[in-house]
């Protein structure tokens, strides 16, 4: 079965989604990521979606789920590189991705993860109440 590779980089996990997502693939990614966080005691997850041309309500929900599940396992999730058209479409669709922290690109995302880790700062965090 098709799977999205998860790379380990020190305390972080790096996921670059290079293919078009469909439901099963997104669900596999969700469970693989949570298992990998557990296996490596990872502190942060960076998901690069710059090559993803569409995100609908299901895939959006999976991204939200990943962030919440990772948080419960004491890992921060940052989603980077969302295409402008995807962001506009998601909001119009009605999905606000509450609780998902994002950054413009991989570099900024990595900085954000490091800052969060080393400052032990939980104040600046977006609240994770999600009404989804």
């Amino acid at each position: 079965m098709e799977r999205i590779p998860i790379l380990k980089m020190g305390d972080f996990l790096l996921v670059t989604i290079q293919v078009d997502l469909y439901d099963q693939l997104a669900e596999n990614l969700e469970s693989d990521l949570i298992n990998t966080i557990n296996k490596h005691n990872s502190r942060g997850v960076l998901i690069d979606i710059s090559a993803v041309s569409i995100i609908d309500s299901f895939m959006g929900r999976i991204l939200g789920n990943i962030a919440v599940m990772a948080k419960i396992m004491d890992a921060q999730t940052v989603v980077v590189g969302m295409q402008p058209a995807v962001a506009i479409t998601l909001v119009e669709l009605g999905l606000s991705l509450n609780g998902v922290i994002s950054a413009l690109n991989v570099e900024k995302g990595m900085d954000l993860l490091r800052a969060k880790m080393y400052n032990g700062d939980n104040e600046g965090q977006i609240d994770d109440n999600d009404d989804e």
Binding site: S53, I55, D56, Q83, P84, A85, V86, I88, T89
Partner: peptide, 12 residues
Amino acid sequence: LNQTKLITAASE
């Protein structure tokens, strides 16, 4: 943008 909206609608 319109392509993305259309494809997202189709995906739903």
